[in-house]
Amino acid sequence: MEQLVIQETDYDAISSKIACINKKYLPDPQIFSVYPNYELLYNSYFNELPKVTRRSYNKIKKLMSSNNYPIMNIGTYLRTVSIDHVLSLYLLPNSDNAEKNNHFQIINLGCGTDLRYFQYNHIYEERLERYIDVDFPMAIETKGRVLSNLNKKNPSLFDLNDNGGSTDGKYQLMSFNLNRNTDELIKQLELVGCDFSLKTIIITECCLCYIEDAKSIELISKLNSVFNAKTNNLHWVSYDPIGGTDKFGQIMTDNLLFQRNLKLPTLLTYNTKEKYSKRFSSIINSDISIKIEDMWEIFQTKIPLKEKTRVQKCEFLDELEELKIILSHYVILYF
């Protein structure tokens, strides 16, 4: 049951993302210029979904009709582009000649309906060696069926096999409950072709926040040691809410527990940027510098003025104070 509650948070994520696409927040022009199929990708996934599971489709539709305040769209936009930009500008600069021959793989833990593989495969092509989407068995099964249906309709856009993975084995969908033993996770990653000596980027987007503290420490430290045993080339991008030092975190905890029985075990533990980043710095090699920014900082300092103006014109935003409060409680960490 608890698993289902967590899995259903993907409905929130995908409904917000599609709402953002409908309102033209996404894709941002930078992504659009390198991957023009973004809108088509998400819309065709969403349109195919009711043929696989009407229940999920209806739940997402319902969320879309109730969760559509501009403040939510701006937050979803920032969450999406901040991860994309960290990857494209910081971890995988395409222009950098030294990096050009560097091949890499991406592991998205708790991927949900995220379809970044298609975007990155298009942008990085042969540099991307492998892309592994990991989530609960039910989520992966749905995703595999939807993708394989879509592949039959539009093989050029998807290029997948019948299980939803890519024909060349580059893209893998892997069922795994992250609350299980991390050694088991590592074994399974190996089975789907994960290369522990390759430059690797792990993405956890609203994933660690649902995992018990001890379990998440085990996850980070074991993955860190298995990848770093062979090469010092592990990167991590993590997006999560933080409780803050005000009442926000406690209210969020109460609201989500009361409304959905959803638990965020570490929201109040790693409640500041410093503490959230310590979660990693206490484990990984101390030479590596960990960067962390909250979404308000991203909005104020990382989004170019022209793009900011575009975003603010998508809809009429009535309130900035509230936006600041909400956005400063979500962070992106990367190294």
């Binding site: 319902k62 969760n67 969020m252 989500l256 009361f258």
Partner: peptide
């Protein structure tokens, strides 16, 4: 308080979710 001592909530049942990024 969102819930009173009788368990009545001020959040309508029909509201499927609070506005958080999940």
């Amino acid at each position: 308080p969102i819930k009173d001592n009788r368990g009545n909530s001020i959040i309508p049942n029909k509201k499927p979710s609070m506005d958080y990024f999940l």
